[in-house]
Structures are given as C-alpha cells and as structure tokens.
C-alpha cells in the first residue's frame, strides 16, 4: 500500500480523467455545435450536401435542429433580402446564449452578385446580427464550411475557458478541396 503510484482513480484499468468542470463543458460544447436548419438560397444546397454522406458534417457533432431554441449556431446560408432580414433577427433573438453566427457565401457576407443593382437585397447580414465567421464563395464548397466551423470551434473553446468573445470576425480563405474532381490529379491530355 505504500506504493506512491497507486493513487485512487489513476490505476491503468480505471480510466479516469481529472479536469475542471469548465473545461469539460467547453470540450462538450465544442464538439456538439447544434446548428439551426435554415437555408435561404443557393448556399442552402451546399449546406445540405455538407450534411450528406460525402462530407458528413454530423461527424463533427453538428446536428441540425429545426428550432432556434435548441441551436447554438446559426449558419446564414444564402441571400438575405430586407423582408427576410427581420425574420433572421427574430430567429437570432430566440437562440440562447452563447450563440454563434456563421455567414456562408458572398450574399450573406456582402450582397454578392446582387449588391450593385438589386433594390431588395440587404448587403450583408452583419447589419442585423453579429457574425463570427465569414465564408466567401458563391457558393462556398462544403470544405470551406467545415473549415469555418473549425475556426469557430477555437472561438468556442476560448469563450468557455476565458469568458471572452473574440471581437474580430474570422474570414475563411484558401481552401484545399479534399474531395471531388478538384482534388483529383488532372489527367494527361492526349
């Protein structure tokens, strides 16, 4: 019994990990970002494809929720018009703190192709709700979305451990396609 190695809970067959409760919660939170199933336009199809079998965003613990009250994360996928923007604000208001917003695609970032001549499109959802991660692209590849989620996880961890929200938003850039035709080596032309 005098063996100093033999402390309670640390024997090789007991598998107990000692940690602070906060860290444990942060770990759990980080790996279960439930997102609001909410798609407005073209990016919504890419969001669906990201949830599909090839990209399988569920493996990151991201499960779509139909109601904002159960969601941690809102992915604004697609063009936001003035008529819609007030609804988006309403949805965001219903989410519980801490809540996160990812702006997916050029339209939600800045109006995209509709920014110049359209009378009804809002140029950027950040006029209504604060955005944590911007993902450019029209539409972005699912890899870009996953990259944005990874960047968001860093923020979630930081917020949980220090209680601080990072003020400056993150912008995803330079995505290496991991699947699909872009990933394959170009075939030799004959």
């Amino acid at each position: 019994m005098a063996d100093p190695q033999c402390r309670p809970g640390n024997a090789s067959h007991e598998q107990i990990h000692l940690t602070a409760v906060d860290e444990f919660l942060a770990w759990g939170k980080e790996h279960s970002l439930f997102y609001l199933l909410f798609a407005t336009a073209c990016c919504g199809i890419e969001l669906m494809q990201a949830g599909g079998p090839r990209y399988d965003i569920d493996r990151l613990g991201m499960i779509p929720r139909a109601t904002p009250r159960q969601a941690d994360l809102m992915i604004v996928a697609g063009t936001i018009t003035h008529k819609m923007a007030e609804r988006v604000k309403l949805l965001w208001d219903q989410m519980t703190e801490p809540r996160w917003v990812v702006s997916m695609g050029s339209c939600a970032n800045s109006g995209g192709p509709f920014s110049k001549w359209s009378y009804s499109v809002l140029n950027g959802i950040d006029k209504y709700v604060p955005v944590d991660v911007y993902i450019p692209g029209c539409p972005p590849r699912p890899e870009a979305l996953i990259d944005g989620v990874m960047a968001l996880r860093e923020r979630v961890r930081l917020y949980r451990t220090t209680g601080q929200r990072t003020k400056t938003p993150h912008v995803v850039a330079g995505i290496e396609p991991a699947f699909g035709a872009h990933h394959e080596k170009p075939e030799q032309k004959t």
Binding site: H82, E86, S110, S115, Y119, G124, K127
Partner: peptide, 10 residues
Amino acid sequence: HGVSHLRDGQ
C-alpha cells in the same frame, strides 16, 4: 425600415 442596403461607401 431605417436600415441601408449598402456597405459603407457604396
């Protein structure tokens, strides 16, 4: 409703 469409300077 008081919200501008445009980005700053656009």
